[in-house]
Each structure stands twice: as C-alpha cells, then as structure tokens.
Write a protein that binds this DNA or RNA. Structure first.
Lengths: 164, 164
DNA sequence: ATCGTTGCAAAGCATTTGCATGCCT
DNA sequence: AGGCATGCAAATGCTTTGCAACGAT
C-alpha cells in the first residue's frame, strides 16, 4: 500500500532530470511530487496552486523558487505545460507513457500525451485523446503549412453539466 | 478610396450599442474604430495594444477606461474576444458578416466568425475557417456532451515560416 | 570546492477599483 | 436633469529579478 506507483513516475522524472545534468533539490523534488499527485487525480494545477501545495510539503521553499523551478523543469522537458482557455497555465509530468487509470469515457485516454478542452462556465478541464485533432492537424498542415501542437493549448466550450 | 467601408462596420457596431441602450462616448467610439481598423488588416490586438492606439486617437482617454470599455463592449456583444495560446486576449468586432477581403489561402475565410491558431515561435495568429473544427466539435458533443465554442480560444503550433 | 539553486525583498506589469466629476441622452 | 461613464490614483495579484548565501554533486 505504502509504496504506490507514484514513486515510479517521480523517479522517472528524477532520472530525466539527472540525465539532463540538472540537480535534484528539495524544491524540485517537492514540485515533482505535487505535479505527479495532481496528474494521477486528473487535476490541473496552475503555478500558484503548485506553490500552495509545495508550501505544505516544504514550507521553506519560496514562491519565487516554485516559478523558477517550473520554468527550468519545463525547459528540461521533465514537465510540460498547457495553456488553458482563460489565461492560466497548468503543468503535467511530461514523461511517463501512461499505465494504470480506470477510464470513464470514450475520448478520454489515460495520462501520457493528451489534448484539453475547458468549460468557460465552470472552468472544468476535460482531457481528450489527441487523435481527436488528427484531422484538424492534417488539414492545417496541408493548407497552411502549420504544424499543430495538440495539447499545448485548450479549446473552450461548455461542458455537459453547464448546459443548463 | 477615401470613404472606406470601415464606417459601415463601425456604424453597425454603434447601432448595436445603442440598441442595447448603451451610451456612445468618445472612448467607446475610439475603441471601436481601433478594433475595426485592426480587424480589416487582420491584426490581433490585446487590451494594451488597443489602449496605445486609442491614446493616439483620443489622448484624453485613460487606460483604465479602455479596459472598462472593452469589458462592457464584450458584454453588450458588440465586441468578442479570443484567448490566444500564451495568455493574451485579443478583440474583434463581433457583428458584421464579412464582405470584402481578397483571400490568400484555402482555409482562410474573410472576417466574420473564425477560429484561430497561433505560432508559439513567432506569435503570429492565423485565422482559420470554423468548419475546420466541425468534426472535432461533433465528436466532443457526441462523446462528452461538450459543446465546443470554436474560435473562443486558439490552438498552438508552429507556422510554416518558423519550421526552420 | 564549485557552480547551480535558493531565499529574500523589491521591482514590474497588466488589470482593477473607489470616488468625485463630467457628459451623453 | 439624471445616471452612467470617466479620470485619477492607489491597490491588486501574479510573476520576475538582483544579489548574496547555500548546498547538491
């Protein structure tokens, strides 16, 4: 029980970090654990959300450090971020090709790479299988020479619950 | 030459404004002209961009007023805004069902309603015909009950020029 | 021991708000 | 005339930065 697969994802992230010649610090470790936990509960945390949780885990870590850490982890490729509809940016562990996770709906796919749509009414973020955008991506490439980065930004709309 | 259809679009916007029982003030008029001009040159202006141009047109108008004006014009429905990939929000005249404009590429469509994709390398914003997202919209609705608001948020990718 | 990383605190920026005045209708 | 919109200025909130101290390797 107490040795959940979480460690696997975090460890993998740590390995990536080290492979990139980066140092592992308490701040970085805390950020990785927080993001991993959020990932596996399908939460989407912003920089400040992460800062808040890191503060609980490592009170000594300064907010500014969380921002710098997020930036460097994204640069390293350990984390990736998604720009949501409004303005917020949320973070994910980028590595890890999915493994467990009991899915609930069709277009939903376990972790790993995925696209996002956000409800502008309630703010909820839904994960979507990247293939849903394959046709659009193909058309944009053919017509405009534009290579779509599926999942780097979320589209807006209204979720089922908010359709009155 | 000098009596461009601009006035038509602005006038239409003004009518909408009045129909909504809102007042026409120098600040609002300036904002409308600026946004109209941007629209017809396919530019995508943020609140501060608009503020800067309004300052040239009406030096007396305060920045705070531009923000308040944009908000109220969007509420009224005269303007609509699009959330770009990064964080910025850009504005469009919402009415006006397109008219002139010599198009250059297939998926490009004159003004009116359209979707957007943004290059995260150069920041350029490309307008895309909303139909490009029809299939995605249909699938999201069918699978998740999510109603996509095409064109309220932009997707990210890399434009032809930036593909090295 | 070295050099990247952190803490701290202050600066930055875009955006918002309270309030009294002004002006559109 | 009446009430919404504006100017002004201060406050906000998130994020960034300079610099010296710290600590991971």
């Amino acid at each position: 029980m107490t040795n959940p697969p979480e460690s696997a994802r975090v460890e993998q992230a740590v390995d990536l970090l080290r492979a990139a010649g980066e140092r592992l610090t308490p701040a970085r470790y805390a950020v990785l654990r927080v993001v991993d936990a959020a990932d596996r509960s399908d939460e989407h945390l912003t920089a400040e959300d992460i800062g808040a949780r890191v503060a609980e885990l490592e009170p000594a870590v300064h907010r500014a450090t969380v921002y710098r850490t997020l930036t460097s982890l994204v640069d390293t490729g350990v984390l990736s971020h998604v720009h949501l509809g409004g303005a917020a940016t949320v973070y994910h562990l980028s590595a890890v090709p999915a493994q467990h996770h009991a899915d609930h709906d069709t277009v939903h796919q376990p972790h790993g790479h995925h696209a996002h749509v956000q409800c502008h009414a309630c703010g909820k973020v839904l994960d979507v299988a990247p293939e849903v955008f394959d046709d659009v991506a193909e058309r944009l490439r053919a017509d405009l020479g534009f290579v779509l980065d599926t999942g780097h930004a979320a589209l807006l709309g209204t979720c089922q619950d908010c359709l009155t």
